[in-house]
């Protein structure tokens, strides 16, 4: 029972919200436009580093730091998009993987350690006065202390972080909904189905794909900021496993739906938390004695759920089964 409650509490975590937001951006690329972005982690890294460096190292105001992160994400999208979006879809896939790895190596390298902290990453330490999330903490309207909601207890900081991040998720999800119901969104979905058909109808396909890459990338960068707000910035967090996890989230919830990425992120993290709880229980009970590293088990449960889902609901939890039936035609 405790495991269930703790797991459900994970829904309120800024990390869950960050994954939901990142998956919304990826959904715009992959689910709605059909862009194979296998380097979404790169956009998150750019947001996280752009923001944290601006505040903690360059002492810029938070609003400016946000603009820096957004501008860098736009630049990154253009850098990737301009050479590849007129080519076949697989070129974008290759370039996004490569570009996100280049970002990770760059921030990890000692050459730029003055800015990025190299392998150490960027600290977020209030006591040392270099916290990049201080401005958010200062804006907390809740009194210090604990807040009880049903069976759960939150610190004021946790509650504020949860509200702030989930409001951003809600606003961005609403924005994407508004975009996708518009004629602009219909063109995007048309491009996903057959870009030559859209070209023959006078649509500038490359322009639309570039717009989609930029918007989804900026959403990814914002998610990157969210991801590091409660913790520190570490280069290892932005490896291709992050991209893989975001695809898992998207496929769990249902690609090309508005709320699929949100539901997917929630289910993903609640499951991870639950499997952590079960593993700890198992360790204490001595049932897992044989396993050298039980913490590796946490992804096993998620993996199993994903396999079950692919067998029984391949379109994801919110997807439309009918659409999938056409894929093999």
């Amino acid at each position: 029972m405790d495991i269930l409650l703790t797991s459900l509490q994970q829904i309120m975590s800024p990390v869950t919200a960050a994954y939901a937001l990142a998956a919304i951006g990826l959904n715009l690329h992959f689910g709605f436009t059909g862009l194979l972005n296998f380097g979404h982690a790169g956009f998150l890294a750019i947001g996280a580093y752009g923001f944290a460096i601006s505040v903690a190292v360059l002492d810029l105001p938070v609003v400016v730091a946000l603009l820096v992160a957004v501008a860098l994400a736009v630049l990154f999208a253009l850098l990737i998009g301009i050479p590849t979006l007129r080519l076949r879809a697989d070129y974008l896939a290759i370039v996004t993987i490569a570009a996100s790895e280049i970002i990770r190596f760059t921030v990890n390298s000692s050459v730029l350690a003055g800015l990025t902290g190299g392998a150490q990453g960027i600290n977020n330490n209030e006591a040392m006065g270099n916290s990049y999330s201080q401005a958010f903490k200062d804006a907390n309207p809740f009194d210090a202390g604990r807040v009880e909601i049903g069976p759960w207890v939150f610190t004021a900081t946790q509650l504020w972080a949860a509200i702030l991040t989930w409001v951003v998720v809600a606003v961005v999800a609403a924005l994407v909904w508004a975009l996708m119901r518009s004629p602009w969104g219909l063109v995007l979905k048309g491009i996903r189905e057959d870009e030559h058909a859209l070209t023959s109808l006078g649509k500038n396909v490359r322009l639309y794909k570039t717009q989609s890459l930029i918007i989804g990338g900026v959403i990814g960068a914002l998610a990157g900021i969210m991801l590091v707000l409660p913790s520190t910035v570490a280069p290892g967090d932005f490896n291709s496993r992050l991209t893989f996890n975001l695809f898992t989230v998207l496929l769990l919830g249902g690609a090309a739906t508005i709320l699929g990425p949100v539901l997917g992120a929630i289910v993903f993290w609640v499951l991870l938390q639950a499997s952590d709880g079960l593993i700890q229980l198992g360790e204490r009970g001595g049932w897992l004695g044989g396993f050298a590293d039980a913490s590796q088990l946490r992804f096993t449960l998620v993996g199993i759920v994903l396999v079950v889902l692919i067998v029984f609901r391949p379109q994801g939890m919110l997807g439309d089964r009918k659409e999938l039936a056409f894929d093999d035609k």
């Binding site: 004629p183 602009w184 219909l186 048309g190 189905e193 057959d194 058909a197 859209l198 109808l201 649509k203």
Partner: peptide, 22 residues
């Protein structure tokens, strides 16, 4: 080159020209 996962009506709508919302 029909747009398989769009409805027939949507296929038509995306064909229209001068749609400002695009």
């Amino acid at each position: 080159r029909v747009l398989g996962r769009l409805t027939v009506l949507e296929n038509m709508l995306v064909g229209a020209r001068h749609q400002p919302g695009e």
